[in-house]
Design a protein around this nucleic acid. Structure first.
Lengths: 204, 204
DNA sequence: AAAATTACCGACCAAGTGGTCGGTTCAAAA
DNA sequence: TTTTGAACCGACCACTTGGTCGGTAATTTT
């Protein structure tokens, strides 16, 4: 267990830095040497721990991306009874993090889905699976919201889920350079407007 | 003029094939040789017409992307008096084209903005300019829609424009593999719902 | 203390990359 | 017919890429 610690530490350092650079510069446009240079490690160390660049990336998905998407975008909505409020808070939080230039894993997901689509089927599958869990979770919460009287009954939960995710990824795509604060404000405003039109009208 | 024709033909062939491959595999992940091989042309021919790979890409933006975005996404909305109907038709058409695997220039734009962001400031600027024209045009049309009684007066035109574009790009990001038909149907349904909530309630 | 295993080093390799350059083809101008 | 120049060819260059491999230092196991 003690010797496993060293192994884990080094692997984790590589994965963290790897994700940072892959996200910033793209997977195909980031060399292993780029990562190794920043960590002052050698090729030998890398290929001792990972079989290939692809294998390395898959380990990043499984160890970092999956968990973060869960923590940031799935769990905060999961148990909640009022779906629209939960979703609003969740997006608000995620966009705030994105503004501070930290990794926003919702968009990390979309970003990589985009880069690997049609180029690497295996990796694409891993990413799509995460997306699907996210989507299913949203649908479930929305459906439950109907029984609890928060969501209008005519609402197409699957359509709404797909639309929410896609608009979120879209706004993140446009949130570059300086206008990101302005954009995320606009986005949250409009998402509220949209969700309001889907809410069950309460009879008082 | 006659000899200019040959020049133009070759350049256009390179640009068309270049856009196709850059879009499919990414700019940095597509070599000039990849393009040349498919056209049975040589390096010499390429560097006779273009100064560099970057210069080549800029010419593609100016000659293909700009015009197509105008034709597909800006002009169809520009003159219309009823903004929401025009936008709906426009998106419907663009998504139908995307489904048939043809180049969808709205997303081409987003795709490249994403790839070049933080990596090539010059190219990013060209792309952002196109985006801005699109946005401004939407805002203008929405504002006019207020005077004409189609758009509710409380609506924040800039917010709506940003939201429409981002959700469009987002849905295109997710429209991969087989479920694209389903997704685009959902998207159009939800976009209608959203826009309905922004429409001026007509007094009959 | 000796042996074995883990973690890491860095020179090396084949296959590309963007870009250069001296040369060739061929239609139009002289 | 000769000359000229635009359009194109392809060998070549310096450099980077993912990946290999023989070696070594340090730590555990025996």
């Amino acid at each position: 267990m003690d010797k496993n610690l060293k192994r884990m530490t080094t692997m984790h350092r590589m994965q963290t830095k790897g994700l940072e650079l892959f996200y910033k510069k793209g997977f195909y446009n980031t060399s292993i040497d780029d990562i190794l240079k920043e960590l002052s490690l050698s090729k030998g160390a890398f290929y001792y721990h990972f079989q290939s660049k692809e294998d390395f990336f898959i380990s990043i998905i499984q160890n970092l991306v999956v968990r973060k998407v869960y923590g940031m975008l799935i769990e905060p909505i999961e148990g909640e009874t009022d779906p629209f409020t939960a979703i609003e808070k969740c997006f608000e939080n995620a966009l705030a993090i994105a503004e501070h230039n930290e990794l926003d894993y919702g968009f990390v997901l979309g970003n990589f889905m985009n880069e690997f689509n049609g180029r690497n089927e295996e990796i694409s599958k891993y990413l799509r699976d995460i997306y699907k869990v996210w989507e299913v979770n949203l649908v479930t919460t929305l459906q439950k919201g109907k029984t609890d009287g928060y969501v209008a009954r005519h609402v197409d939960s699957e359509g709404v889920a797909a639309f929410l995710i896609s608009s979120y990824m879209g706004i993140r795509m446009l949130m570059v350079e300086g206008n990101s604060r302005n954009l995320s404000y606009h986005f949250l405003q409009q998402i509220r407007q949209y969700m309001k039109s889907l809410a069950q009208t309460r009879l008082v």
